[in-house]
Simulated scan of single mutants.
Amino acid sequence: MSNERELAVIEVVSQRPHARAYERYTRAMIDGLVARAELAGWSVTRVCAEDLGTDRLLAATRDADAIVVCGGEDIDPRFYGGSEVYEGRGKHYPTADAAQIAVVQRAATVGTPLLGICRGHQIINVAFGGSLVEHIEHPGHRNEFLPIEYLLTEHPVSLAPDSGLAETLGGEYILGQSAHHQVIETPGEGLKVVGWAHDGLPEAVEHTSLPITGVQWHPEAPAAPVEQLDALLGGLAAQLSARSRELVAA
Rank of each mutant, 00 (worst) to 15 (best):
H121T: 12
L229T: 01
Q239A: 15
Y80S: 04
Y173N: 08
D55I: 00
Y93H: 14
V193D: 06
L132M: 06
G88P: 10
A250M: 14
S241Q: 15
D76L: 08
T95C: 07
D31G: 08
I212H: 05
D31L: 00
T54Q: 09
G235V: 00
L165K: 14
P94M: 08
P156V: 01
S158V: 12
P139A: 04
V104R: 06
V133F: 03
T45S: 11
C118E: 04
Q228H: 07
E203A: 01
H218S: 04
G176M: 01
G164L: 05
V194Y: 00
E154R: 01
D51H: 06
V9S: 04
V183R: 07
R16V: 06
R46E: 03
T112Y: 03
Q182D: 14
E134L: 02
G195I: 01
G111N: 00
L229Q: 10
D31S: 05
Q216E: 15
D65Y: 10
S158K: 09
R243H: 15
E38G: 15
A96R: 11
H207N: 12
A249Q: 15
V47A: 11
V193E: 02
E185Y: 10
E50G: 00
R62T: 11
A37D: 09
R5M: 13
L115H: 11
N143Q: 14
G170I: 02
H180E: 13
E73F: 12
Q239N: 14
V126D: 10
C118V: 02
P219S: 06
L132N: 09
I117N: 04
A37V: 07
A96Q: 11
V110N: 04
S2G: 12
L191F: 01
G171V: 06
V248Q: 06
E149S: 05
A19T: 03
H121E: 13
G190P: 08
S131A: 06
V103M: 03
A179F: 12
E50Y: 03
T26D: 10
G120Q: 09
C70F: 13
K91D: 09
A19H: 09
R62P: 07
D199M: 04
P156K: 03
I10Y: 02
L115D: 12
V69T: 14
Q177C: 13
A242G: 14
I101G: 05
T153H: 05
R78I: 13
G171Q: 06
V47S: 12
E189S: 10
H180K: 07
E206S: 04
I67N: 11
A64W: 12
R46F: 05
E73R: 14
I67Y: 13
I75F: 11
W196G: 02
D63T: 13
V110M: 01
K91F: 09
N3P: 00
V110G: 00
E134N: 01
T213M: 14
E149Q: 07
K192S: 14
L115G: 08
R89D: 05
L229S: 09
A237Y: 13
V104W: 02
A127N: 05
S163R: 08
G111P: 03
G176Y: 03
S244W: 13
N3D: 10
H180R: 12
G88C: 10
Y173W: 14
R46Q: 07
S178L: 07
L151C: 03
R245N: 15
V126T: 07
E189Y: 05
P211K: 15
A60I: 08
L191W: 02
M29P: 05
